[in-house]
Simulated scan of single mutants.
Amino acid sequence: MVKRTLAFTVAILTYILIVFGGYVASSESGMGCGPDWPLCNGKVIPILQGDTLIEFGHRVIGALLFILAVVLYGTIKKTAKHELEKKIANWMLLLLSLQLIMGAIIVFYHLPSLIISTHLLIAMVFLSLLIWYWRNEEGNGFSEIETLQGYKKHLNILILLLFFTMGIGAYVKHQHYGLACGWLSCGDSILPGSLPELLQTIHRLSAFISVCYILVITYIVVTKNIKILKSRMVLALFIIILQIIVGVITILSFISVSFAVLHIALAALLFAIIIEARISLSYPHNLDR
Rank of each mutant, 00 (worst) to 15 (best):
M92H: 07
L98A: 14
F108Q: 13
L184D: 06
A170N: 03
A180M: 02
I157D: 05
A80D: 04
A104T: 03
I157L: 15
M92A: 03
F164C: 09
S117I: 01
S97M: 10
S113W: 00
V172L: 00
D188N: 12
Y133D: 02
L94M: 13
I168M: 05
Y171S: 00
S143Y: 13
V107H: 04
I131L: 14
G169L: 11
L127F: 14
G182M: 06
S143P: 01
S113L: 00
A104K: 10
Q99L: 09
L95S: 06
L129V: 03
A180W: 01
D188R: 11
F142N: 10
T147V: 11
N136G: 02
K153W: 09
M166G: 15
G167M: 03
G141D: 06
L84S: 11
Q149V: 09
G103R: 13
V172T: 06
Y133L: 15
A180T: 05
Y109H: 08
I88M: 14
W134R: 08
E138L: 13
I101W: 02
T147N: 11
L160I: 12
I157R: 09
S143H: 13
L184W: 11
A80V: 08
K152P: 05
L84N: 09
M92V: 02
A123K: 05
G150Y: 08
L94V: 14
T165N: 12
G167C: 05
V125A: 14
A89S: 14
A89W: 01
L94D: 01
A170E: 05
L155Y: 07
T147I: 11
N156S: 11
G169W: 01
A170M: 04
M92G: 14
I101Q: 01
E137Y: 06
G141V: 08
Q175V: 00
G103Q: 10
E85N: 07
Q175W: 00
N90D: 13
C186K: 07
L94N: 09
L130V: 04
N90C: 04
Y151S: 10
M102P: 07
C186S: 05
L184C: 03
K81T: 15
T165G: 07
M124W: 05
I145A: 11
H82P: 00
F108I: 08
G167T: 05
W132E: 07
H154C: 05
S117M: 03
M102W: 08
E146W: 12
T147S: 15
K152F: 04
L148N: 06
N156T: 11
L94S: 15
M92N: 05
R135I: 12
Y171R: 01
Q99M: 11
L94E: 03
